[in-house]
Each structure stands twice: as structure tokens, then as C-alpha cells.
Design a protein around this nucleic acid. Structure first.
Lengths: 217, 217, 217, 217
DNA sequence: GATGAATGAGACTTCATTCAT
DNA sequence: TATGAATGAAGTCTCATTCAT
């Protein structure tokens, strides 16, 4: 019994260390980009020896990808939460398809930034990603898509959204442009408040509503 | 007179060299990313010695930034051209605010990619940018914004767009989300054609029209 | 009594473990060379923890040397066997001085290779060998030499070999060059069969006979 | 004209540097083996920066192989010299096939050691040798073989060597076992003088003569 | 202006060895 | 006795930048 406890505690500690490393890496990758963050720096930030990192992640790439997956999972959870929390259809639509991503970009700017730079720099630049990992990313991406598509379908079934709309098209248009707007906004962060005289959240809501209206019967 | 001519010819040659270097850098940056492109590789591609590059650009970052500015200028030109070419207001609106960026992303994928990765990785990551350069970028960015804003204002003045709309808000919403959608599309390029059963151009036009409709009186 | 038995069983187990480690190390050292074989890999192959190896061998070098000694012992046994098995003098001479080494190189290529690379890279390159070990190697080497010398002396006593020959010189000439030829043969293994149109065994026998003839009265 | 001189001087300097690096590497490889010699150590020995080595040799392996080829060339030259210097057939035979290698092992112990450790550790352990290099090694090896074979053939034609002998077999037997004996001798260097009461050169000559006699009609 | 050899800091990664459990 | 996480020195190699020519 005691042995089992020890093993369990050890495995917990190991998981903890892994999380600590991921946390340090997240901050540094965000602050200096993937390429400019050295394993040295990460190790120093966690307070571990350089070699120790390689006990937890076989690669710098693997570390990066692990963060990415972590991020995608968090976004998915956020979306699921939005679905649960909103009964009113319009709210559910707007919150899940647009605001979820926005809030995520505010609450987890590092993860969001990481995920976006992965989009921009695109897969091939990561040297050697095992197909396991790419398929895991694919999997979560698809789940998020399904989630969004089902919301649009619900709208069509309820007679709220025009039945001539292709749910996939709608999702891609709104999700892509919403996410894209967030990225642009992060860069030109003053423009919104200066020129539009509204908060970013209001700006995103306004964007979402405009979309929503255009879908109505 | 002769001296002036010589000077002028020399300065032309110098400008030519600069352009050659930029061209080589553009291709390589795009193909292998900023970090993975070495000055060696650029020099070899232009057929110049490594040290020579430093006569034209004081460091690698400056080369990168120069390309960025070049890109912004090209996009601005494309937008101006769209304005000139389209008399019909709807066309002018859609072409300038959305399709210009899309076409630019197709015709000059290297520049577009560069500009976007700059957005994503954000300015502070470039080591040592003189304020001259940032302000030059700012300048061109603002010009593009003004261009777009004036188009929206034209719509309001013409009574096509609802006068309660804030031109800045409109521009940022449509330009940011359009550009953002293009980035996302580049990454998940199959999704559009597979799920929406339309070409990317049609997709972008559809997105733009949806927006345009939502602005009408 | 019981205690003694326990101790004895324990010591047997310990010896067994030691042999298992040596076996794993042998295969890996041969497959990837000494330097490219990690203690990790050895531990994994035996199914023990890395730290455990250090309970049996105080460091990597000792492991290597242990194998070496093991190899020398095996070669000695092979020679003794050849002496026992051959009554006819010429056969005994040829089999013990030349063919024993050749067969050993075929049957125990790992050990042979290890022993030879030890010859080539020479002792001083191993970091920290206690004099105990070097003297053990010396001891076995001398025993083998004595064995060979006694065979030559037997030939002289029997009047088969010219009495003016110095037995030591003969042994060193034939054993060294025989072993040397085997090493070279391993490297240029095609040359023999291609150019000489004989098997390697035949080649070695031919070499040995040539030598034997030159010694006869 | 001046330019050409400058270029020529530069290329001479470059060649000189290359030789300096090779010289330093040779000593260190010999002293500590390939694996235990670091590029750092080589750089320090030549008095150059680490990175500079990579301007002359793209790899650690390439550096090693360059030395190897250098060594093979030197041995070939030594053999050619022996052929030129000796008119008497027996001398030519013994000097070229056996003593050349021995003298080489004394005069250029580093090269000899390097070449032998290459034999022992065998090609596959060097990571990535371009086929260019392997074929260059092959080329020189074959030339040496041809040289030796032609000497044996000369003996057969002159009626000195029994015409039933296969020249290839003879060469391989004598050259391989001669070289092999030298290696073994280097390791157990005391044995010869202690037990045989002769110098190593005398020992090698004795070995060669024994062989030579066995070939005579 | 143009060259390209030289630099040396710094990147990722490996691994023999130790030591707390 | 056995473990295996942790260490940190050391290894190979890259590359932006400088500077003598």
C-alpha cells in the first residue's frame, strides 16, 4: 500500500514538474518567440538543469507542441462552457463563436499568441513533428469546428438562421474573421479605443452582432 | 555635369543592388522563416559577399523591416488601384477593403506572410528597431486606414451606408477580420473548398458582401 | 549453514546479474562502438535501472575492461582446446597459433573486435584503469604467450623445427601477423574471396602452412 | 597581375591554414582517439576560433577522413620510393611490401595509428561519408594493391617466385600480416626486444625474409 | 566600395555519474 | 539492494557581425 502511495506521489510530482516547465516555456515563448527562446532560458526559469528538461520533453519542438495542444484544449473548454452557460440562442451564438476566442485571448494571451504564431508560421517550419501530434491537433481542431457547426445547425433548425446558409461556411467566416480580428487588434491595440471609442469587448460584440444579423431569416 | 551623372548612375546602381538584396531576402525569409535564413544564404543568392550586405543594410533586422515597409507600400498601391478601377460604390467598397488584401496575399504571398508574421510576433521582438522605422510603418499604416475610412465616409455621404455607423469602427471590423480570415484560410486552406464548396475568392466575396449588407441603411 | 547458503545464493545472483550486464554491454559496444554506447542503453537492454549498473561496475571503463578480460579468457580456452584436440604436431601448431584466433574472430566477433580496438586505440586512452586490471590483462596475455612458446619448443624438441629458431620470435611473428591479417581481412573482407578465390579459412590455413614450412629443419 | 598575385598568396595562405588544422587534428586524434578529441581542442591547438575550423572542413568526420587520405597518400609515396631505390629484387620485395609500412609506422605514427583505427573501427561508424571520399580512399587503396601485385608478378616473370603462386594471395598475405604485426607490435612494444633480443626493424626484416623464402622456386 | 576569413557567443542535445528514497 | 530523477559539463555546429585587405 505504502509503495503504491509513493509511486502515486512520485507520478504526481513528475506531472507537477512537467507543468512547471510548460508554464515557464509558455511565458518565454510568448515573450521572445519560439526561435529566440533557448532551452537554457527555460531551464533557468524553472530552476532546473538544462538536461532535466529532456527528461520531460524529448525536444524543444515537443515542448512547443505540448503547449499548443494544451492551448487548444483550453479554448475548447471555454467554448463548451459558453454553450452551457447560455440558454438564449443569440447569446450562445455570439459568445461561443466570437467572444470565447476573445476572452481566451485576454485570459490566456500566451496560449493565444502561441496558437496564432503557429498558424502564421505554419506547420512545416517545425522540424520533426510526429504524426501522432499533428493528428492530435487535427482532432481538437475538428472538435471545435463540430461544436460551432452544431450551433449554426441548431439555429437553422430553430428557424432563426436562414436555411439557405451553409453551416460550414458560416462557421469558417465568423470564426476565422473573429479570430483574425483579435490578432490584428492585439497588434494595433490602441486603434480600437482611440478611433472607435469603445472597449475591445464591445468592438468584438459589435462584430459578432453584425454577423448574426446577416444570418437571420 | 559629368560628375553629377556619375553620382546619379552610382546611386542608381546602389539602389539596384539594394533591390536585389531585398528580393533574395524576401524569397528566403518566406521559404525558411526569418530565423532560419542566414545572411550567408542571402549573400549567396544575390551573388555578393556576406560583408557587402552590411554596406546596404546595417543588420539583419533592418533587412527584414525594409521588406515589411516595401510590402505595406505595395498593399497601399493595390488599394489605390482598386479605388481607381471601381466606379460602382459597392464594388469599390468590397474590392478595396477586402479583395485587395486577398489578391495581395495571392500575388505576393511572401510579402503577405512576412507582414502577418510581423503582426503575430509583434514589434517588440525585433531587437533594435530605430524609431525612424517604426514611425515609417506607422505612417503607411495610417495612410491605408485613412484610405479605407474615406471610402466608408463616401458611402455615408452618398446615403448608402447608415449614418449612425462609425467609419473607423467599420473599417477596423472589416479590414481586420478580412485580413484575419485570409491568414486563417492560408493555414486551413482545404477547409474552405472541402466544406464550403466554393473557391477562396468566392468565400472572401461572400464575407465582404455579408458585411456590406449589414451597413446599408 | 542457512546463512552461508543464503550468502552463496545471493552471491550467485550477483554474479548472474554481472554476466547479464556484460552480455548486454558486449552487444551494444560491438554494434555502436564504446563511445556511442550509453550506460542508459545498456541498463535498458538488461532491464535494470541506470544506477544499478554502478553497483556492479564502478564505471563505464571498468565494464569495458571486464569484457576485454572475459574475451582474453575465452581465447585462451579456445587455444587450450585446440592443443587438447590435436595430436598431430603440424595440426596442433597451425590450429593453436593461427586458426584458434581466426575461429574466435568468427564465433565471437564482438569479443574479437573489442580486443582489437583495444589494441589499436591502446591502453593509455582508457581513462582510469587501476593497475590491478592492467596486470590481469598482462597475466592472461603472458599465459597465452607461454602456451604458444611451449608448442614451438615442443617442435624443436621433437626435431621438427630447426633448433636455431628463437621460440619467442617465432610465436610473435606468427601469432601477431596471423591476428593482424584477421583484422585486415575483416575490413577488406571481399578482397580475399574475389582476388584469391579461396575462403577466408583456406586463406588463413595457407598463411599458417607457409609459416610452418619455413620453420622446418 | 598584382591581383593574381594576391589571389595566389591568399589561396596559399588558405592551404597553409588547412595544413595547420590537419596537423593539430592529427596529433590530437592520435593522442586521444577520434571520439575523445573535441573540435574545441583542435581549434585551441591551432590557435583559431572554433567556428573557423568549419570554414575549412564542413565536419569533424571530414577532418578525420582528410587525414586518412593524407596518410594513405604518404604510404603510397613511401612505397614508390622503395621501388625506385631498390634494384635488387629481394630488397625491392622486402622493402616495399613490409619495411615501407614499418618505416611509415615509425616516421608517421599518428598517420599509421589513424589508418589502423579506421580499419579496426571500420567505416560504418563514421556517420556520413560522402561516396566521393570513400571512393577516393578506395582508389588509393587499389593503387597500393596494384603496386604490390606488380612486384610479385615481376618476381614470377623473372623466375624468382614460383609461378604457381597467385600474386593477389601473396600480396594480401604478406601485406596484411605485415601490417597486422606492426599494430600488435606497437601495443606490446617491449615483447620483441625483451624476448627476441632483436630490434623491431630486424624483427620485421626477419618476418619478411621468412615470407620471401617461402615463395622461391 | 567590395570582399570573405575570422570570430566567439550561443544554440540544442547527450550522457556518465550521483544521491535521496 | 535498487531506483531513476537530476545534474552540468561537454560536444558539435551555426551565424550575425567585424575588419584587414
Amino acid at each position: 500500500m505504502a509503495t503504491i502511495e509513493v509511486i502515486s506521489r512520485k507520478s504526481q510530482e513528475k506531472e507537477l514538474r512537467k507543468q512547471m516547465i510548460l508554464a515557464a516555456a509558455k511565458e518565454l515563448f510568448f515573450e521572445h518567440s519560439y526561435e529566440k527562446t533557448s532551452m537554457d532560458a527555460i531551464a533557468q526559469k524553472v530552476g532546473l538543469a538544462k538536461g532535466t528538461l529532456y527528461l520531460y520533453f524529448s525536444n524543444k519542438d515537443e515542448l512547443y507542441i505540448s503547449l499548443l495542444i494544451e492551448g487548444i484544449k483550453l479554448l475548447k473548454q471555454k467554448m463548451l462552457q459558453k454553450i452551457r452557460e447560455n440558454d438564449n440562442y443569440e447569446d450562445k451564438f455570439i459568445q461561443t463563436l466570437v467572444i470565447a476566442s476573445y476572452e481566451f485571448s485576454i485570459e490566456q494571451p500566451q496560449y493565444f499568441s502561441l496558437m496564432m504564431s503557429f498558424q502564421t508560421e505554419s506547420l512545416p517550419k517545425i522540424n520533426c513533428i510526429s504524426s501522432d501530434v499533428t493528428s492530435e491537433i487535427e482532432f481538437h481542431h475538428n472538435e471545435i469546428m463540430s461544436l460551432c457547426v452544431s450551433i449554426v445547425q441548431e439555429g437553422i433548425e430553430k428557424g432563426i438562421i436562414d436555411s439557405s446558409e451553409n453551416p460550414f461556411e458560416v462557421v469558417i467566416q465568423i470564426w476565422f474573421s473573429g479570430t483574425g480580428a483579435i490578432v490584428m487588434m492585439q497588434c494595433h491595440y490602441d486603434d480600437i479605443e482611440t478611433f472607435c471609442r469603445m472597449s475591445k469587448l464591445e468592438f468584438m460584440e459589435s462584430l459578432a452582432k453584425r454577423f448574426y444579423k446577416s444570418l437571420k431569416k
